[in-house]
């Protein structure tokens, strides 16, 4: 290798390494940190027993997401993911029809999570509900 070529490669390589040394910390700084996700939560106390009147619902935090607990007119407690499978808006309970409605793009689900109408491509995830003493425990179905 000629001395001139060696110097070219050496200087070019140094320049690239210098640029990388500046760019890498900037890119890592801008990208969000992976820590702090909180992991997957398998069960949560969603409400106190008897707190929810019949034909009403409440949204609660479940892990890093949200879920909805519905007390049907018959007094049965049902829990589902509150995140619409279309574009992630939080669904709301429509007491008149006894369904879950997403106001963003008019998606509608039954209390089994199945899509009744609108653009949602998948059903809502359903969760197990158990009344344990004074607490309503919602857990992921295995």
């Amino acid at each position: 290798m000629k001395r001139r070529n060696f110097v070219d490669i050496f200087l070019g390589g140094s320049l690239l390494a210098t640029i990388a040394a500046f760019v890498y910390p900037v890119v890592r700084y801008v990208l969000p940190s992976r820590s702090g996700g909180g992991g997957v939560q398998n069960s949560v106390t969603a409400a106190k027993a008897g707190e929810l009147p019949p034909n009403t619902a409440r949204v609660f935090k479940f892990g890093s997401s949200t879920a909805i607990l519905v007390n049907t007119p018959e007094g049965k407690l049902v829990a589902l993911s509150a995140v619409c499978t279309h574009l992630t808006c939080t669904v709301r309970f429509d007491a008149e029809t006894g369904t879950l409605f997403c106001p963003c793009h008019n998606g509608r689900f039954d209390l089994g999570g199945n899509v009744l109408s609108g653009p949602p491509p998948r059903p809502l995830e359903t969760y197990a509900v158990e009344v344990s003493g004074a607490d309503v425990i919602v857990s992921r179905e295995s």
């Binding site: 949204v59 609660f60 935090k61 949200t66 909805i68 509150a82 808006c89 939080t90 669904v91 709301r92 309970f93 997403c102 106001p103 963003c104």
Partner: peptide, 10 residues
């Protein structure tokens, strides 16, 4: 409110 349902008419 991250825990509220999406408001109607959004």
């Amino acid at each position: 409110d991250p825990l509220a349902s999406t408001p109607l008419g959004i």
